[in-house]
Structures are given as C-alpha cells and as structure tokens.
Design a binder for these strands. Structure first.
Lengths: 128, 128
DNA sequence: GTCAATGCAAATCCTTTGCATTCGG
DNA sequence: CCGAATGCAAAGGATTTGCATTGAC
C-alpha cells in the first residue's frame, strides 16, 4: 500500500469534515484545491478505507453513499427534509451495549440512526 | 389513489415476508404467481408506500434497496458476510427512547442496525 | 368516459472495471 | 526499474422518467 497524494487528500478531508461527504463531494473539493483525482480512484480509495475500518460508508435515502471518518460510538441524525446528516455527540446519548449473541448471530458493530427535522427545516417549513 | 392488483400484491407480499425483499425479488415473486407488474410500477408503488410510512426502505452495503413492511421497534441484524437481513424480536432488546430534542433537532424515528456474522456464515467460514 | 396507474423502453445516475500510463519506493 | 496506484472511458446495475395504453371508479 503506497502512500499517494490522492489517499492523503481523501483521508485528511474526511478527518476534517463532519458532514459526511459523498464521493462526488470529495472530488469537487479536490479539484477546487488543485488536487487531481479521478472518480475511479476516489471509489477505490474509499473502498479500501472502509475495508480497513478507517472509514464508514453510510447509505441514506438518496441512494448515494456518504463517507464518514470512523469515530466510535457516534450516532447519526438524518434530516428527513434536507437529507443532511449530523453527528450526535456521543456523550449525549447512552449507547446500549449490543455485543451479545442473538440466536447464534454474533454482533460486531452497531449503528444507530435517528430521523427527524433539523432546526433549519423545522423553522423554514412548518408545514412538513 | 386507486386500488390495483399490483399495489395489493406488493403490500400483501411485504406483510407476509420477513426477509426484506428487493424490488427485483418482488417482481420475480409476482411473475411466479402470475401477477404482471413492470419494474417501474414496483418502484413507484414502493416509493409511495415509503412516503406513506407503510413501508421502510433499507439500504445495505450491496447498494440495493430492500423493502420492509413497517413494524415499529424492530431492529435489523445484517450479516457482514452473506448480506442477509434479519429482524430482531423487539422484546429481546431494550430500545432507548430517543424522541428528545438535540440542539433543535426533533427526532421522529429511530433505526438501529446491528452488524455481525449470522450463525451459518460463522459456522461455514471460520476464517472471516 | 375520465384520469390515475400501469408497462415498456429509454434515460439517468452512481459505482465498478479494463487497461494503458504514471510514479512511489 | 518494478509493480502498485492512478485516470480515463466504457461498462454495469439500480432506479427514474416519458409516454402511450389500460383499467378502476
């Protein structure tokens, strides 16, 4: 696994951002900062990072994959109106420990997602 | 909203099945039972049902949408090897009530997913 | 009879793959 | 230099859309 500026860019971007960008978002940002990355490379890099457990792949209702630097015990809050994904500070929530056996199923990871309306959408559009 | 045999078929299928079929699965089953439904109609029907809250759309790592008749307080267990999605009987797990306000975000729904290895995959392939 | 709902096929969009080229070690 | 990693373009696969046709009411 060689160190390339493409990989460095993707990882550092994900570490900096908390808004769960898509592959497209990452490519746009790269081009904007003068880093050239092809779409295929983005997907390959992200896929490797997901396999390595560094990055988490989130699938939302828009059918587009969002990528998230792995931060344990985080909970995602998805706005049903604008689709934005927020991180819920983990201290605010008690995550029950699900790592038990259920009928022979061995639980390795848990993911909690909450859906609702974010502050902005609730204010802007009271009719939803 | 007119009652058609396509809609009836899709809804009754989802009510009967607990294995979260994809649009393709639904169409296959329909054809097998002699009910003719085009792919577009399946997607339109499912999309309407999701909007109406009758059906839940699940997105898994295979990038294919799975559909699930809405049963409150269910927890999904996804096998990381074979991709099967199981329902966890809700009595077996304590679902914390997340319906609070977090920084102006109003929580309406919660979804908990657990990932691991199902019994079969764990037995068959100890190397994973 | 009307118009919502369907089926078909084409279009669209995200993601993956094949392959020649580049560049890290 | 060698071969892993990249970029490009084409391919693949799921979902959506346009439009003529069908069928529920």
């Amino acid at each position: 696994m060689r160190k390339t500026k493409q990989k460095e860019f993707v990882l550092s971007l994900l570490q900096k951002r908390y808004d769960h960008p898509t592959a497209q978002d990452i490519q746009d940002q790269a081009l904007q900062e003068g880093v050239k990355i092809g779409r295929a490379s983005i997907y390959r890099i992200l896929s490797d990072m997901v396999s390595a457990g560094q990055v988490r792949k989130l699938l939302t209702k828009d059918n587009v994959a969002h990528y998230d630097f792995y931060r344990p015990n985080h909970v995602h809050i998805v706005c049903k109106n604008c689709g934005k994904i927020f991180d819920l500070p983990s201290e605010k929530i008690f995550l029950q420990d699900f790592k038990q056996n259920f009928g022979g199923f061995e639980i390795e990871e848990q993911e909690v997602e909450l859906f609702g309306l974010c502050k902005e959408c609730k204010t802007k559009n009271a009719s939803i």
